[in-house]
Design a protein around this nucleic acid. Sequence first.
DNA 1: GAATTCGATTCTGTATACATTTGGTATCCG
DNA 2: CGGATACCAAATGTATACAGAATCGAATTC
Lengths: 248, 248
Amino acid sequence: MAEREADRSVSHTVRAQLALRDLVLSGRLRPGERISELQAVEITAVSRTPVRMALVRLEEEGLLEAIPSGGFMVKAFSERDILDSIELRGTLEGLAARFAAERGVSSRDLEPLKECLNEIDGLVRQDPISVEAFSSYVALNARFHALLTELSRSPPLIRQIDRASALPFASPSGFVMAQSALPEARQILLIAQDHHRVVVDAIENREGARAEAIMREHARLAARNLRLALRNRTHLDLLPALALVTAG
Amino acid sequence: MAEREADRSVSHTVRAQLALRDLVLSGRLRPGERISELQAVEITAVSRTPVRMALVRLEEEGLLEAIPSGGFMVKAFSERDILDSIELRGTLEGLAARFAAERGVSSRDLEPLKECLNEIDGLVRQDPISVEAFSSYVALNARFHALLTELSRSPPLIRQIDRASALPFASPSGFVMAQSALPEARQILLIAQDHHRVVVDAIENREGARAEAIMREHARLAARNLRLALRNRTHLDLLPALALVTAG
DNA sequence: GAATTCGATTCTGTATACATTTGGTATCCG
DNA sequence: CGGATACCAAATGTATACAGAATCGAATTC
């Protein structure tokens, strides 16, 4: 709540959208809970009009759900929904990788991607990986996936991937990986990094089918890991669980 | 403009959304053209607030594009965009078919799908297919794809497919297939119908990989046909061209 | 004659007032 | 004592008024 006077450049609508999205992703509003406009007005400190615009956008984005009788509530997702979303995104990113490979990319376009890979390498090479390093990894991983998506040079596909990534991969704000889970997480990161390298190689050599296959495999791994995590800690909340996936 | 007092049950926002969507899909507003709120208010006969809501929704839907300086314009699509969208939808529907096959469907769930197939059969069996029969086919085909999508029983995937279908397969209103193109179109329909039958068979026998492959193939055929259609008639408008695709 | 600047008009963004509908509670009747 | 009905409160849906920004045109200057 320190950004009351910050970002005077952006519109009220956007500010409201950001504030309300954070409200949902932080978990302060539980799934299924109704979010009233009055409440939203108090939180965002703008009037009802931009608040309503933000609510409509968040509904289209998939974070909220319209209540038939009026108003919105935080959308609830089942474990199945999340797992499906992971596979869905993997499929879309597979298509993006194939497009990139088939259409060819210049070495100039690949440069930022490789640089991203190297930065990730630097992080995962530390053996007892630190909590901060893991958080950095999550951000870099998101960057890698975004860059890869861009390589497809297909606006409709990029748009679709953005939408598909909106919910299941929206990193819950303020979440940090538990110290105890770090060694296990590092092993997963190493495999994921291997996938990353393979897909870049496949794109570079214009092997569309291989590029697509590896991204699908990448997603299946993420789904498997999430399933295991949910099994082990019996009542792990879905929201923090999403953060695990974000690392995939 | 005869629905001034019709549909008093639905909200003004929804009515405005429908009216504006029709405005775009009918081609009365060309791609790139700006749509002002005042204009929209005159057309929809509701005030600016619900009009704005409708515009935001149509933007998220992909029919409109926000102008940086404010307001919205009709989104313009390149031939590449449309072709990519077809492949994109094919990929998503392939995933849906695989989910359906892997998770298994009861014969009760397959019944409406098979009934739909039979109805289509009745249409395409007529050798000189009529203009009306072709229009019916387009509607039935859309129904088949929707039913197939539902079989995946995956809300996130269904939602995504709906979004992906929004633009490139939104049948331009009032479009009818030219008489001269009908024989050629019938050949395409016969192949498409064959695909339909194969995918249903694959799902019934729980062959996920085969179900997925055939839907992808189905999309590739649609893309190829559109490409050919655009080549032959050199300056065929994209909007009517979309109607051709809707038959795929 | 062309370009630039100033001004007016129009549009969007925002706020607020009004109306209709929904949901809840309390009271009354069976 | 239970259920139904009526009334009240609150929230959504809608309309409109107001302010700031952008765009277009015209006039002036170089």
